[in-house]
Design a binder for these strands. Sequence first.
DNA 1: GGCCAGGTGTAAA
DNA 2: TTTACACATGGC
Length: 222
Amino acid sequence: MKADSGLLEIYERLLTAYGPQKWWPAETPFEMMVGAVLTQNTSWTNVERAIAALRSRGLLDPAQIVGCDEASLAETIRPSGYFNQKAHRLKLLADFYLEQSSLAGLKRLPQPRHALLTLHGIGPETADSILLYALGMPVFVIDAYTRRIFTRLGLIPPDTTYHTLQALFEANLPAEVPLYREYHALIVMHAKAHCRSRPACDDCPLSGDCPVAHQAASLRSR
DNA sequence: GGCCAGGTGTAAA
DNA sequence: TTTACACATGGC
C-alpha cells in the first residue's frame, strides 16, 4: 500500500477547495439512518424526494414506520428506487431502533457494528455511516467514490476490499469523528464535481487543476 | 435512448 | 472465492 499519512494532506486540499460540508444532511439521528438506507446505490436528489414524502406523512419516526403498512411505505419512498426492498429494510431498521430503546441503547451495545450488520439490508457502508454520523463513533466510511478516486490517483489497486481500504484510512488518520465525517463528505463532493462518469473522465483527479492531483503525485513517488 | 447513482443479498460458476 | 444479477427511480 503506497498511501500513508499524506492522506491528511489530501484532506486539507479538499477542505480548502470545497469548504466544510457539514454532513450528514438530516434533522435527527433516526432521519440520518433512514437516509443511509434510502441512498443505497441511489442519487441523493431522489433520496431527498423520498425523505420529503416521509416527512409530510409523519413517517420519519421509528414507531410510525413500524406501525404503517409496508406497501404504503414503499409507495411513499418510490422516488428513491428499489422501493420494495427499501421499505422492508426501513421496517427492520425501525424495529431494531425501538428494540434498543432508541439511540442511547444502540450506543450502549457492546458491538453496535455487528448488531447493525445482522439486519437484512444493512451492509458495511450503511452500518458505518450510521456509526459515524448517527452514533458519533470514529469509523471511516468507504463508498464507491472513495475507491474510485483513490484508485484513479494510483494510490490503491481497484479491487481493494472495503475492510482494507477502511483500515488504510483509520491507520493513517487521527481517530477524530469530525475529521472522519468531513473527509467522507469531501470525497463525495469531489467525486460529484470531478468524476461522475464510470470508466473515466478527462477532467478528473489526475488532471493538472485537480486539487488533490499534486498531492497524490508526491504520495506515489514515496 | 443509454448510462449512472453516497449498496446489498443471492445464486451460479 | 469470484462473478453475475436483481432490485427501480430520475437526471443528464
